[in-house]
Design a binder for these strands. Structure first.
Length: 267
DNA sequence: ATGGTCGGCATCCGA
């Protein structure tokens, strides 16, 4: 089973690249963030032609997430949730969750796809919204899910989990994406039972980075951040083969500013 | 030492 998480920075602007990528790699599960696409304009037909079912929630201009599943290999999603549980309802479209039923009574896979708020600047209202959003995500896991079951939580977390995930720990000390409260929030997710899949297989750094600024030369200088993460519960980590960052997809003509992160699992 | 680029939407904002 191959799963990818990818912040596409506008699905409609990226559609040709996304479809070409899906045809080249044939992933079974695809978690997309920043689709920037209202539901009535979501390119479901184009994705279906490419062989994928889509579960999505979006809004005009900003945010938006989707989970695509390969029709040929994957059962239709059930138990769909399209907003981060909790009150008040989050007005921003940043969360989608599905269950992919297993074959012949086998246990299914729960998939959560998130686009964590950026946070704008340390100490800003947006920063506290980000921390609050992460604590609501933790509360949802604690109240509704079980780390002993197969579950993946993946997406753009807008947090570099450790000093291995930034180019220079000194330069990033207490900066947005690397502050203690942001990292503590990820630490709580890990304490609940999630494992950072890439770091489990690639224990040294710095990097690999998944996001690079559009400013010229950022990719060549390897001046990025690792903020696109695949968290998995232990029964899935047991089946984890490898996790890779497709840096090629960050190059060339009009790429997203994020590279796809791909995890392969044994059946 | 500074600031560079995108996408969506409207001539600026968020990233």
């Amino acid at each position: 089973m191959k799963l990818v998480t990818w912040n596409v920075n506008s699905l409609r602007a990226r559609l040709k690249r996304v479809v070409a990528w899906l045809e080249r790699h044939a992933p079974d599960v695809v978690c997309l963030q920043e689709t920037k696409c209202p539901d009535d304009l979501f390119p479901a037909r184009d994705l279906e032609v490419a062989g994928y079912r889509a579960t999505f929630t979006g809004q005009k201009g900003l945010n938006g997430v989707a989970i695509l599943t390969r029709i040929e290999t994957t059962a239709a999603p059930v138990d769909v949730v399209t907003a981060l549980p909790g009150t008040p309802r989050d007005p921003q479209r940043r969360f989608v969750e599905v269950v992919l039923p297993g074959e012949g009574g086998a246990e299914g896979l729960r998939v959560l796809c998130v686009y964590v708020p950026n946070g704008q600047a340390v100490g800003s209202d947006a920063y506290f919204y980000k921390l609050d959003w992460l604590s609501r995500l933790l509360a949802h896991l604690r109240t509704s899910h079980d780390p002993a079951r197969p579950l993946v939580l993946c997406g753009d977390f807008n947090v570099a989990p450790t000093d291995l995930d930034v180019p220079s720990p000194e330069a990033y000390r207490d900066r947005l994406f690397a502050t203690t409260p942001e990292r503590r929030a990820l630490g709580h997710l890990e304490a609940w039972g999630l494992v950072d899949a890439l770091r489990a297989r690639s224990p040294t750094g710095p990097g690999p980075f998944t996001w690079f600024d559009y400013a010229p030369g950022a990719v060549e200088r390897d001046d990025g951040l690792r903020i696109d993460l695949i968290y998995a519960t232990p029964p899935l980590v047991e089946r984890l083969v490898e996790v890779t960052v497709d840096l090629d997809e960050r190059r060339g003509d009009r790429p997203s500013d994020h590279a796809p992160v791909v995890a392969a699992f044994r059946p």
